[in-house]
Amino acid sequence: MISENSILRFARGTRLQHDRVRDVWFIQAPERAFHADPIAVEVLQLIDGTRNVGGILDLLCQKFAAPRDIIAQDVLTLLRDLATKQVLQAI
């Protein structure tokens, strides 16, 4: 289960990609492309295989001046969903 201590990376064969033609972001994955909404993009751009989830939350709190517990809940839900879809994996 992904927690604030988890360090995540994109699984091989998945990546976040900006689509110039449609001006939206997609998560490219084996034989599918998931549309990534602007919030997901903010989160996923901070995944670098080094920073843990807690560190990502700190940065998001600063950037959006929002309460940490609310952000934490949404971000963990998103990250767990993407781990179930095998887009992200814990190191």
């Binding site: 689509d19 033609v21 997609f26």
Partner: peptide, 9 residues
């Protein structure tokens, strides 16, 4: 790619 295709099989 220029047209907006994301994946090539």
């Amino acid at each position: 790619a220029e047209m907006g295709v994301l994946q090539v099989h």
